Structures are given as C-alpha cells and as structure tokens.
Computed example of a mutant assay.
Amino acid sequence: MNSIESILKTARKTIDLERDAIANLSALLTDDFANAVSLIYNSKGRVVITGIGKSAIIANKIVATLNSTGTPSVFMHAADAIHGDLGLILQDDVVIFISKSGNTPEIKVLLPLIKNAKNKMVAITGNTDSFLAKQSHYVLNAYVEQEACPNNLAPTTSTTAQLVIGDALAICLLELRGFSSKDFAKYHPGGALGKRLYLRVSDLSSVNEKPMVTLTTSAKDIIVEISEKMLGVTAVVDQNKIVGIITDGDLRRMLTKSDEFTHLTAKDIMSANPKRIEENAMAVDAMELMEEHGISQLLVEKNGNYAGVVHIHNLIKEGIL
C-alpha cells in the first residue's frame, strides 16, 4: 500500500504539471484568439461546440459556461454529427472543434462537411500542424508538454488546458457584451447565486406572519403574540410606525428581573430604535445587516411604515446564507 507521503507527492506533481501547462497557455495566445472572439461576438448565430471522448465532456462544460454568460451555445457530439446530427448547425453558427491531436477520424470526416456549408470554424487543439488546425479559420493553441498521467496517455493536463481556453473565450465575450450581475441573475433565477442578485426582502417577509403590538400591550398579550406568530419577535408600533422591538430574549430577561410582570407593558420591555430594513432592499443586504449586528430577525418597513419581519431562517431556506 502506498504511504500517505507518496500519495501526496503524486497529487502535488499532478497539480504542478497542470499549473505549469496553464501558465504556458498565455504565451501561446495569438491574434487568432482575438479574431475568434470577435467572430463569435459579431455572429448572428450560435456557437456550436463539438468534440469526441474527453474533449466532448470539456465541450459540454464550455457550452454551459457560454450559455450562462450570454453567448447562446449548443453541444454536438462529433460522432453523432456524421450520423444525423449535422442538421443541428444553422447557417450563421460558428463551430468550435476541440481535439488534442486534431487528427481523429470523426474530425476528418466532419470538417469538410461543415466547410462546404460555409460555417466559420475555430479549432482548440494541441497540435497546430494537424488536419483540424489547417482546415479551421482560427486556431487556439492548447498545447501541453505532457499529460499528468504517468503513461502520458489519459487526457488530464490537455483537457484542463482546453477548459481554460474555453473560460478565456467566455470571459472575453462577457466583457464585450457588458454582461452585468443583473444579467447573470436573469440566467440563474433558480440558483443560490442568482437569488443573491435578485431576491428582495419583501419576497421573504411576505411569507411570514406580521407580529405587532402597541406601546400599551400587556406582557401576557406580548407573549401570546410572539408565540402565535412563531418568529421569536414582535414589532412595537405607534400609528403603524416602528418604535421598538421585543424578542424572546427580552422576555427571558424580563422574567429574570421580576417575579411580577402582569403590570408591565410593551413600552417597559421593548428595545427602542431597532435595526430595520426597507422591503425593496436586496435580501443579501438583510443577511449582511444580521451578520454585522449578530441578530436573527429584522423588522421590515415600506415607506416608513411597519411591513413585517425577515428571519435568518428565510435566508437559509433560500440558500443565501
């Protein structure tokens, strides 16, 4: 059995090999990269990315990254393309081929067919002398000196390089399009990242009860209100304006200070000037305010009037916290 030291040594060697290969990609960039970006940016069609084997898996990832950052893209498996899927490619589409060798049989069959259709072609390959490189309009050099595989066979370093080239394409296109955080939220409405960018306080507080007492509400009724609304807190209002807050903690402190509390009212128990937030504020702002002050609830206002409560559990449920 290998020792811990030898396993870690192999892991570090793998990481170092891939790190060095990625670092070398910068020196391999040419005008073809900038021209390919401009081609895609100015295209009226989509980006179709194709490959086979491990390169096909990388192609899928690049497609996902492009789609999520504003560049419409689709994946086409190179083997399926020559068995019926070639109709996926439309007239104005830009086709990106990913292949380490650039000389696979599927690529050699597929390239002339696409060239005849007059689609622009971009190659991501580690072999700039390959059939793929010579037939493509632009070549993005993804050369790596060796795979991390000790036999220099299993695609490891080479697929990492392909992925990095794809990321570089996506980010260049993102910047050209002026793709903003609002755009990102539009493309990621169901994810936690998107929710941080579009979810507002009102979206959370509207699903909660709205605990509320006045300055003269008795201690007993305050306990009932907090218990029934199940948020561990109630606002103290005067003509629908927030004047204070009472939490479970305030009630416990009240009980430790006095055996007799039936004569107490909200005015005697509350904390004045509580932290609050406007309902149109972003939910992530509520999270930051809670974290800053070490609290679990925030009172919510709408145009200066009491509008409800947002609880830390709301943020957890939505995956924001």
Rank of each mutant, 00 (worst) to 15 (best):
R19P: 01
D20T: 15
D20P: 04
A21Y: 05
N24A: 15
T30G: 10
A34M: 04
N35C: 09
I40D: 01
Y41N: 11
K44F: 09
G45I: 10
R46K: 15
V47K: 02
V48K: 10
T50K: 08
G51F: 04
I52A: 14
G53W: 03
K54M: 08
K54P: 13
S55E: 14
S55H: 04
S55W: 02
S55C: 07
I57A: 05
I57H: 14
I58T: 11
K61F: 06
K61Q: 09
K61D: 12
A64D: 07
A64Q: 13
N67H: 11
T71S: 14
P72G: 03
V74Y: 13
V74W: 08
F75L: 15
M76L: 15
I82M: 12
I82S: 15
H83F: 10
D85P: 13
L86F: 09
G87F: 13
G87Q: 14
L88K: 08
Q91S: 12
D93M: 12
I96N: 01
I96Q: 07
F97A: 01
F97D: 00
I98S: 02
K100C: 10
G102Q: 00
I107M: 14
I107N: 06
K108P: 14
K108N: 14
V109R: 12
L111Y: 06
P112A: 15
K118W: 08
N119D: 06
K120D: 05
M121I: 14
V122E: 07
V122Q: 11
V122W: 08
V122Y: 05
A123R: 03
G126F: 00
N127I: 00
D129F: 09
S130M: 05
F131V: 04
F131K: 00
L132S: 05
L132N: 01
K134M: 07
K134C: 01
Q135S: 11
Q135L: 04
S136D: 03
L140Y: 02
L140W: 01
L140A: 03
N141V: 10
A142S: 12
A142Y: 12
Y143V: 05
V144K: 09
V144W: 14
V144A: 12
Q146M: 11
E147F: 12
C149E: 06
C149L: 07
P150H: 06
N152P: 12
